[in-house]
Each structure stands twice: as structure tokens, then as C-alpha cells.
Design a protein around this nucleic acid. Structure first.
Length: 197
DNA sequence: TAGAGGATTGAT
DNA sequence: TCAATCCTCTAC
């Protein structure tokens, strides 16, 4: 039986553990009456403790305020003026951490995804900006909880083997200097939807 | 209030 | 390799 993740899953302290455990989970969106779903196959962890994070050193701004709330909410922001990126806030209130969803594998609603992406390319969800477009996620959903009926996650019960998970450095965070070397990116080995550098 | 730059993507 | 594109943050 599908098992919707509850807020407890997201409110734990170890953002890297959550980023690792999110691999294999299914994201569902029901937006505009269109149901779509994708299996998470690539994530990155971000924490107030390192410079790549928008909320580094508890930097509290209008944009980062959602990260200061409790875990289990969506943090959606505009990147490069073009792409909406989807993060899952983790940990407890006033401890700003989040997991960036970088890639999913389509599970349901393939036609809706293709229509939203406006392409016949099969690689509809192989990057953080692509998957939000395919799943219909945009900044209107910033702050929404992840246990409602618009966006939610399910555990399909399949366990990912340790040897199928790759841990490596994050992409596009050179501005973070030495913190760019942290191995806080996780992906499913051999999955064709893993984003490329 | 101006200026710089970005957790990306796709075309050249 | 490079442009697109606009919002956020910082400094003045």
C-alpha cells in the first residue's frame, strides 16, 4: 500500500540523512486537475551551517523565511530569472535546512509533463528546473505543506541498496568556496534521469 | 535606489 | 561557450 510521508519524516535533524532517504520516494502533484508523479533519483542537502545555503548563518530574508519554519513545507524560488527550483524544508523551526530535488523519473502523467514542457524529448525531468515545470510546481506553491492534496510524497516500500546510491559534491555552488567541496549530493547510480554537469 | 549575480537550460 | 531573464540581496 502506498504510504504518504508525514511531517515527522521532514522534521528530523540530519538534512543529509533525509536527502539520502528521499531517493526512491515518489512526488505527486495534483495541479489544475492534472495528476503527475515522479520517483526522486537525485537530491542535494543545504544547511545554515555552510555557505552554499541561502540561509547561511541564519540569514533571514523575505526569500528565506520559509526555511525558518518547520520541516515538511515547499521552498520554491526563481533561479537565473528563468527556472523555478523545488526544495523540501527540513528540521525544526528556526533551524533553516532544505533538500533540493534535482531530478525525478516520470511515474505518472507523462502526457501532462510533455505538454507542460512543450517538447517530445523523453528526458522531461532530468534537472531541477525541468522537473518543476513538468510537475507544475511554481512559486505560487512556495510555503505549501507536503502532506496535503496538491503536493505530497509517498514511500512505495522499495528499499534502495547502499551500492546503488552515489554521494558526491553539489552542482553549481562554486560561490560557496570550500563548502562547495562538501559531498552533499546524492543520486541513484546508473539512472538515466540524473542531471548532468 | 542602483548594480551585481545566481542551487539552470538549451542552443551555437 | 554563451545568452536568456528577473528577482533578491547588498551597498551606498
Amino acid at each position: 500500500m502506498p504510504n504518504k510521508l508525514t511531517q515527522n519524516f521532514y522534521c528530523r535533524h540530519d538534512v543529509n540523512l533525509i536527502a539520502r532517504e528521499l531517493l526512491g520516494k515518489i512526488i505527486y502533484t495534483n495541479i489544475g486537475g492534472e495528476l503527475t508523479a515522479g520517483k526522486i533519483i537525485e537530491t542535494e542537502a543545504y544547511s545554515y551551517s555552510e555557505k552554499a545555503c541561502h540561509a547561511y548563518s541564519h540569514r533571514h530574508t523575505t526569500r528565506t523565511s520559509i526555511m525558518f519554519g518547520a520541516g515538511g513545507h515547499a521552498y520554491v524560488y526563481l533561479c537565473y530569472g528563468i527556472h523555478e527550483l523545488f526544495n523540501i524544508v527540513t528540521n525544526h523551526q528556526d533551524t533553516p535546512e532544505a533538500v533540493l530535488i534535482r531530478a525525478v523519473e516520470p511515474v505518472e502523467g507523462w502526457e501532462h509533463m510533455r505538454k507542460r514542457r512543450g517538447t517530445s524529448d523523453l528526458m522531461l525531468t532530468s534537472g531541477p528546473g525541468k522537473l518543476t515545470q513538468a510537475l507544475g510546481i511554481d512559486r505560487n506553491l512556495n510555503g505549501i505543506n507536503l502532506w496535503g492534496d496538491k503536493i505530497w510524497l509517498e514511500d512505495n516500500g522499495n528499499q534502495l541498496k547502499a551500492e546503488d546510491v552515489v554521494q558526491t559534491t553539489r552542482i553549481g555552488v562554486d560561490y560557496a568556496k570550500e563548502d562547495a567541496l562538501l559531498p552533499w549530493r546524492y543520486y541513484v547510480k546508473g539512472n538515466p534521469f540524473v542531471s548532468k554537469k
